[in-house]
């Protein structure tokens, strides 16, 4: 354990420290989610709010359903939600920044003649990427949770799954 960790543990017991740390992470994630939903206005309340809730619920179902991978699934769910929301925040900044440049300025920066239509469509393409990623990330996460059930033999524990295979397979 490093020096900082030792200092923290002088004031908190390790259990309390871990509990407070986790609580802070969850509150921060919910706060970031609410902030992003408000930032995205109608798209936020219409889709992002629902999408993040779907990710949390899918993660919780996996945690409940697959006892063998409980800790790992919780961590992965938290990281998935954090990554998704952080992408939405940062990519919005990128789009706002890029929309400031006119097609002429883009042409000058590239040193070539950029037609107005292609410069405008490039910005539209950047916006489309945002929409596509914002829809496909939660869907992909749910699919990934679904395959976890397949890989882990539903709600079976390790011993149960192996005993099933032993019963079916004919060993030479």
């Amino acid at each position: 354990m490093n020096e900082k960790g030792l200092l923290i543990h002088k004031h908190f017991t390790p259990k309390l420290y871990l509990a407070l740390k986790n609580l802070f992470i969850y509150i921060a994630l919910i706060g970031l989610w609410v902030w992003t939903v408000n930032m995205y206005a109608v798209f936020g309340t219409g889709w992002i709010k629902f999408a993040v809730a779907l990710m949390w619920v899918a993660g919780a179902i996996a945690v409940w359903g697959i006892p063998e991978e409980r800790e790992q699934t919780i961590k992965e769910t938290k990281w998935a939600v954090f990554g998704y929301v952080l992408f939405l925040v940062l990519y919005r900044l990128v789009i706002v920044k890029f929309s400031q440049f006119s097609p002429d300025q883009v042409g000058v920066s590239l040193g070539v003649n950029v037609p107005v239509a292609s410069a405008t469509s490039a910005l539209g393409f950047a916006q489309n990427i945002l929409m596509i990623v914002s829809i496909l990330t939660p869907v992909g996460f749910c699919l990934w949770v679904g395959q976890k059930f397949k890989v882990n033999q539903g709600r079976k524990k390790k011993d149960e799954a192996f005993s099933k295979y032993k019963g079916i397979r004919r060993n030479p």
Partner: peptide, 24 residues
Amino acid sequence: TMLLVIGVVTYLFSEEIKQHEHEF
């Protein structure tokens, strides 16, 4: 939606605490 998420997050938090107890 918010209430559902708070419920789910509370469940995840409790499971994480149980996991830490087990580790200790």
